[in-house]
């Protein structure tokens, strides 16, 4: 039996937080469509009413999950922000410049090494986080503004616009996130990218070197998060 090295990229807490958040997000998108697309609600008003109730309950899960996770691991929050709000290197800039050519010609475009979070990933994930925050705040105002505080019609109309606007952005970045993160895009498939968040959180050495070269080499040199596994011999 040969051995293969894996790097533990995401902790159990990170994966649980991400996965609960994903399920909540998908449910919110589906239930939100019943308000966003009139014919849908008109066709099945009972379902639409149920969806609206669940939209509020699941909205709480959507908001509370990352808060609980942050409280449970303040150090993780610090590391998270350090990864995302970091100075851009020349390789980061090169990555962004080459991103579209890479997506269209992945067999011919060579991407530069990256740190733990790719520059494009920092931008895309940042947009997802911004959308999540904007939708959470506007959603809470839309909800409590008609049930507890009775805010003015103007405030509700503006919040609704914000909710719709960030829904649009969220849809675009979520689809792209799933396309890459779930390995639908073939160059992102070999390393079982989906397992990073929905599996054991590990990535094999080869794919870690391909996607996040700087980070992978540093991890291997430090050896702290390396998992060695026996794998069948290649024929």
């Amino acid at each position: 039996m040969a051995t293969e090295r894996f790097i533990q990229r995401h902790s159990l807490q990170t994966r649980i937080t991400h996965d609960v958040f994903v399920i909540a997000c998908i449910w919110l998108m589906i239930s939100g469509l019943f308000v966003f697309i009139p014919p849908l609600a008109a066709a099945v008003p009972e379902v639409a009413r149920f969806m609206r109730i669940t939209h509020r309950i699941v909205g709480c899960v959507f908001i509370i999950t990352p808060i609980i996770s942050a409280v449970a691991s303040p150090g993780g929050v610090k590391r998270f922000f350090a990864k995302y709000f970091t100075k851009w290197t020349p390789e980061d800039v090169e990555f962004v410049k080459k991103f579209v050519p890479y997506m269209l010609m992945p067999k011919k475009t060579h991407m530069p090494d990256q740190d733990e979070v790719k520059s494009g990933q920092r931008f895309a994930d940042g947009m997802l986080m911004l959308c999540a925050v904007a939708m959470a705040i506007s959603g809470v105002i839309l909800w409590l503004g008609i049930s507890v505080f009775h805010v003015s019609a103007g405030v509700l109309a503006v919040q609704r616009f914000i909710h719709d606007l960030f829904f649009l952005i969220l849809v675009i970045f979520t689809i792209a996130h799933i396309f890459l993160g779930a390995g639908i895009f073939e160059p992102y498939r070999p390393g079982h990218m989906i397992g990073l968040m929905f599996g054991n959180g590990q990535i094999d050495e080869s794919d870690a070197l391909y996607h996040w070269g700087f980070w992978a080499r540093k991890e291997i040199e430090e050896g702290k998060n390396i998992v060695v596994k026996e794998v069948p011999d290649k024929k």
Binding site: I172, E186, P187, G223
Partner: peptide, 27 residues
């Protein structure tokens, strides 16, 4: 939504058949 799906469909097609050799790092 349609634009993103269409764009990603083009990307998907361009990625079909992609292969890269396995790498390792000698630390």
């Amino acid at each position: 939504f349609v634009a993103v799906i269409a764009g990603l469909a083009v990307c998907y097609i361009s990625g079909i058949g992609y292969h890269r050799d396995t790498m390792r790092y000698d630390e």
